[in-house]
């Protein structure tokens, strides 16, 4: 067979394959959204316009093999997360006084790049702050995150998904944590939990993670330029919005506690 013909044939097959894969993924996502839409859709606070977040849906224990797993959608951003551990540790990672916490972030397609690595580090540090890692010395706790759809606020959604997976896994934690993103518009207005379209019009985006006890900041990640005052304003608005997430966490636990 001539070479160009072979090439075109191969690319045709590849094209078809990706199309089928995308179709399967979107069908799964739609099913998941449809399944959950009647349960908790639109329950977020509409009265306080400035600190309302996009609708959140979550399911725990979606994958059977890991020790804890969750799928979380915030608006149209979807992340699936899994926790393994405390389990056996590789020799070079061994810490005699605490668990080694590792995070793997997988993008929707392709291999992880540097920005994914950065995201991994932020998530790892956030998880490690909340966990009581000293309870599990000489072990490793792995948090795996799979991006399924990014429609703005992917980092916040990943952090929240990792918290939910940790809750499902039963790893001891000092507190829960929740992350909220806000965007800063050209005229220094703050949009809490913007979607991808709104985020495009923003000159900066700020992501904060809070603990559930005192609502202190445990992680902060920003991009773009903005005045200090805007940062503080955004922080306060995100802090208010995090209350909604913590209430949501408690509702989820209550929902799953009925089988205990």
């Amino acid at each position: 067979m001539p070479r160009p013909l072979l090439h075109s044939l191969l690319s045709l097959i590849l094209n078809q394959l990706t199309r089928v894969l995308h179709a399967v993924c979107s069908v799964y996502k739609q099913n998941f959204l449809a399944m959950n839409s009647n349960s908790s859709n639109g329950t977020h606070s509409d009265d306080k316009e400035e600190c309302s977040v996009r609708p959140i849906l979550c399911e725990l224990g979606v994958i059977t093999r890991p020790d804890g797993s969750a799928i979380l959608t915030q608006g149209h951003t979807v992340v699936m997360s899994a926790v393994y551990g405390p389990s056996e540790v590789r020799m070079q990672r061994l810490q005699v006084d605490r668990a080694y916490v590792e995070t793997v972030f997988r993008p929707k397609a392709g291999v992880p790049n540097t920005s994914d690595r950065l995201r991994e580090t932020i998530i790892r540090d956030t998880c490690e702050t909340a966990m009581i890692a000293t309870l599990y010395p000489r072990t490793t706790i792995s948090v795996i995150l799979q991006e399924m759809e990014d429609s703005g606020g992917l980092l916040a959604c990943s952090i929240n998904a990792s918290c939910l997976a940790l809750m499902d896994s039963g790893v001891s934690m000092k507190f829960l944590f929740a992350a909220v993103t806000c965007g800063v518009t050209e005229d220094d207005l703050i949009i809490v939990d913007p979607d991808a379209d709104k985020l495009k019009e923003c000159k900066a985006s700020l992501t904060f993670a809070f603990d559930s006890i005192n609502k202190n900041v445990i992680a902060s990640y920003t991009s773009g330029t903005f005045p200090v005052q805007t940062y503080n304003n955004g922080l306060e608005k995100c802090r208010q919005a995090s209350d909604f997430l913590f209430d949501f966490y408690r509702d989820i636990v209550r929902k799953y506690a009925s089988t205990l």
Partner: peptide, 23 residues
């Protein structure tokens, strides 16, 4: 509390959290 679940009390004043842990 350090885990999610239902707070329970066993005999001999033992308190614990009933959770969905697998590990």
């Amino acid at each position: 509390a350090t885990k999610c679940g239902v707070l329970r009390k066993g005999g001999n004043n033992i308190f614990y959290v009933d959770s969905r842990q697998k590990k």
